[in-house]
Design a protein around this nucleic acid. Structure first.
Lengths: 224, 224
DNA sequence: ACAAATTTTTAGACTGGTCTAAATTTGATC
DNA sequence: GATCAAATTTAGACCAGTCTAAAAATTTGT
């Protein structure tokens, strides 16, 4: 009685999963999905009907959708595979962190439980991907230590850079160009009221300014 | 002006490539392809028209097909990816040689030149896959040292086991169960006329009998 | 050389995934 | 609570890839 889930359906489930976690756990609208996947609302409606028939989502016309437990399991497995492959690409094949997304989008649909279990072991059962995003474990459990963007801490002091919100190539390349990597220590020396920019020292280097836009996309933890 | 080649089209090209090399380099028929891919002849005809329009094959109705240079390059790239991924699965993830085919069938369609170049380097630029099949290089060149099945050597003496003809799980598991691995030395001690079976010693172990069916699917080189 | 058997192609239909254009529902505003 | 704009769904179309059934071409056997 196993339902077959196509690559396209997997992508819809992943999109719904991602969108529902953007702010609070919540319902996702047809338009949000069509924006995210770059296709038309009518197309999304058709797919929602199919996913609903397969019991992968709860769908009430005009009301938005939520994943069922089965849908959530499927989505999180795709996320797990995506993030594990990103670790493989960076750690083993020496790709840069801004180069791996498109390839992982393909690899995440390879279907073999045995493969993913062995890959996980081969990589040393990593807990985070190269962008600091947590990797769900084999049971679909996720480390929920959600870090907070730098600009939301309104205090000076020491932080550890643990992840990014924005995953675009240009943003990641920008961070690389200013010399910032996951795990670095950030010392916030000044917070400018008028434009919400931050004067920050990376590790022991010279201080530089982070715009609010940069600071809002950098996830940090207070350094112990 | 780059033509997009779908996963399905890649599989047809690979099938044509494989079938055309089975005996001599030759034309491939519609029925051969439909048998190989387990679909109907009518389906194959449709696809042949499409591949022909894309200049990937030379197709004359009722006459069979041959790959164009572009088609051959595409097919051989898929073969290269398949075999490199098989090496990865066996060497890095410790899969057994009879477990990797289905997974590699999926991985062979991942589309990234950079990925395959880095994977090749990571694996140490292997020349052969776990079944002894040669891996085409990045330019589509293939080691053409075609080994010969054991049963075609009508002489006793020492051989090296370099590959298999048959790739089925059951055959590979059979070889494993009799303790035979790529690279092993085979000493042919007797050839029985009446059933064409072979009495063979693997490395320094006890002698055993190979049926003609086994001997015909084992590729060997005369040991220097 | 011609009829029979086989192979291949054509015709027409279906599914998944997409689209545009039109109709419907929701919900915000006055 | 009636109206209007935005969001969503329905209707109808298209393409890729598959099928079955029927027609056409090729090959084979006597």
């Amino acid at each position: 009685m196993r339902v077959i889930i196509s690559l396209t359906e997997e992508n819809y489930l992943k999109a719904i999963y991602t969108l529902s976690h953007l702010f609070e756990e919540s319902e996702v609208s047809t338009n949000q999905i069509s924006d995210h996947l770059n296709n038309k609302a009518a197309t999304v409606t058709d797919m929602l009907k199919r996913l609903s028939e397969k019991k992968l989502i709860h769908y009430i016309p005009y009301q938005g959708v939520k994943l069922t437990e089965k849908g959530r399991q499927t989505a999180i497995k795709v996320v797990r595979k995506h993030r594990l492959w990103e670790v493989f690409l960076v750690d083993k094949l020496q790709f840069k962190w801004d180069e791996v997304h498109e390839i992982a989008e393909q690899l995440e649909h390879i279907n073999s439980d045995e493969l993913i279990q062995r890959l996980d072991k081969f990589l040393g059962k990593p807990k985070f991907d190269p962008h600091g995003d947590p990797i769900p474990d084999a049971n679909g459990q996720l480390n929920i230590v959600k870090a907070i963007p730098l600009n939301q801490h309104k205090i000076k002091g020491l932080f550890t850079f643990v992840g990014v919100c924005e995953h675009s190539k240009t943003f990641l390349q920008h961070l690389t160009s200013i010399g910032l990597k996951i795990g670095d220590t950030l010392k916030v020396e000044e917070i400018n009221e008028f434009d919400n920019s931050f004067k920050v020292k990376i590790n022991k280097n010279n201080s530089q300014f982070f715009s609010n836009k940069v600071a809002s996309n950098i996830l940090v933890e207070i350094k112990k």
